[in-house]
Amino acid sequence: MLPLGLLVSGEQAEIMEIKGCKGAHSLDLEKERPGDEQGRIEDMGIRVGKSVQMLNNGGRGPLLLKVDESRIAMGRGMAMKIMVRRKG
């Protein structure tokens, strides 16, 4: 298992675990609760058991994944909290 953020462009993997991403939100504008981030990425189809393909990982900055038919850009911090298993 390795964090999603370490996949190289072109590699495929299966999601094994999504660690809770608890962020502190202090501003009243932002109604997010801690733990909601995990819910949000799951709602976008990034779930345990899913196959993903790394489309663009420049080593720094956000990365781009393909999950099913959608391309999802994701911050690096979050990608490091998603554990995957490389596929042949």
Partner: peptide, 14 residues
Amino acid sequence: TLFKGEAPMFIMEL
């Protein structure tokens, strides 16, 4: 100060 805290999560569909 005003916008303390982690930069909000970045996730969006292209």
